[in-house]
């Protein structure tokens, strides 16, 4: 009986150890965040750009590294140097927009001039507000 208890105790410790090791070194290393699984902050492209232009530091606190769902009109579609699709969403200011790189060239390709909603992670503000790993939201 004592042996059995010891054995099961040993097994439990072993499983926990392997689980912890797996989580820290394997799962975390291979797992990337997806905007699909996260609760998003919903905002229009114009609002986001205006906030960044007014106060970049405060906007970074609010939006940097957060999952956002951005809505607006597509003004440009291009490819980056790796062949990934980039989508520019118009704001009220012609010189500052929301620049998004899609995570993969999926089936629903956006069209210039159409209204769009994208989910992605905000990486900050250069001449545009920049979004990475974006996914087109189809409703």
């Amino acid at each position: 009986m004592k042996k059995k208890i010891l054995l099961s105790l040993f097994l439990i410790i072993l499983v926990t150890a392997i689980g912890t090791w797996y989580y820290i070194f394997i799962y975390s290393a291979n797992h990337h965040r997806s905007a699909e699984d996260e609760k998003t902050i919903d905002i229009t492209a114009s609002q986001l750009v205006t906030e960044y232009q007014t106060n970049e530091a405060a906007s970074n606190v609010k939006y940097l590294n957060k999952a956002l769902k951005i809505t607006g009109e597509v003004s440009e579609i291009k490819k980056d140097q790796e062949g990934k699709t980039t989508v520019t969403i118009k704001s009220n200011d012609a010189f500052a927009n929301v620049f998004c790189t899609l995570i993969s060239s999926g089936s629903s390709q956006p069209v210039v001039g159409s209204k769009i909603s994208l989910k992605g992670f905000c990486t900050g503000f250069l001449s545009d507000v920049v979004i990475k790993d974006a996914i087109v939201v189809t409703e």
Binding site: I24, F25, S28, A29, N30, H31, H32, R33, L64, N65, F121, T123, G124, L126, V130, K132
Partner: peptide, 15 residues
């Protein structure tokens, strides 16, 4: 100019 958070690693933990 670039944003640090736009750097992508194969390893998420390293990122």
């Amino acid at each position: 100019s670039l944003l640090i958070k736009s750097f992508k690693f194969a390893n998420g933990l390293m990122e």
